[in-house]
Amino acid sequence: MTRSRQGRHRERHDPHWIEWLTGLLSALLIAGMLGRIGWEAFTREATPPDLSVTVLTTERAGSGHRVAFDIANSATTTAAAVTVVGRLLEEGKVIEENRVVFDYVAAESKSRGAILFSNDPAGRQVDIRAAGYTDP
């Protein structure tokens, strides 16, 4: 920006080289992102949900016990209405069974949840697994 003889501002009509460089770099970045998204859309195979559960912690919670876990989906397709079943087993017999339902577990991601048991899981086998899902 420059000043004229009367003290008014006057804009330059030719853009500065930094504006051209910034515009070029932005266009290249956007073209690269669109190219990658397009490449993945046409070449990536859709695989059905592959759910796995990992128990994280067991702790006392109020009048019961909370068993926290991660559920991971390693596939390229999202699973909806994912039902997770948790069982407490003692000598092969089911002492307690509870369920929790996740609205969805996105493709190639994991979610965290917990199942609440009224019996103490200490000294017992805890079996938590995905029991089913629907296609979104």
Results as ranks from 00 to 15, higher is better:
131 A>G: 15
77 T>I: 01
74 S>K: 05
3 R>K: 13
74 S>Q: 05
132 G>P: 06
122 A>C: 00
74 S>G: 06
20 W>V: 04
30 I>F: 11
77 T>W: 00
83 T>G: 12
36 R>W: 14
90 E>R: 15
115 I>H: 00
20 W>R: 10
116 L>G: 02
37 I>K: 12
93 K>A: 15
86 G>Q: 03
9 H>T: 11
1 M>H: 11
48 P>V: 06
135 D>P: 01
29 L>R: 04
67 V>G: 03
37 I>W: 11
116 L>M: 10
111 S>H: 12
25 L>Q: 03
76 T>R: 04
31 A>D: 04
61 A>G: 04
119 N>A: 15
13 H>E: 12
131 A>N: 13
121 P>R: 03
61 A>R: 13
97 E>T: 15
93 K>C: 01
112 R>M: 09
87 R>T: 07
40 E>P: 00
102 F>T: 05
43 T>C: 06
52 S>M: 09
12 R>I: 07
116 L>K: 03
112 R>I: 05
71 I>A: 05
57 T>V: 08
45 E>A: 12
9 H>C: 12
47 T>D: 03
35 G>C: 08
83 T>R: 15
116 L>W: 09
42 F>N: 07
118 S>L: 12
109 S>M: 08
23 G>W: 05
58 T>S: 14
30 I>Y: 02
122 A>H: 09
12 R>C: 07
71 I>C: 04
101 V>Q: 11
115 I>A: 01
28 L>H: 01
8 R>G: 08
60 R>I: 01
36 R>Y: 15
18 I>F: 06
119 N>V: 11
120 D>E: 11
30 I>G: 00
65 H>W: 15
118 S>M: 10
70 D>I: 07
8 R>W: 10
130 A>S: 15
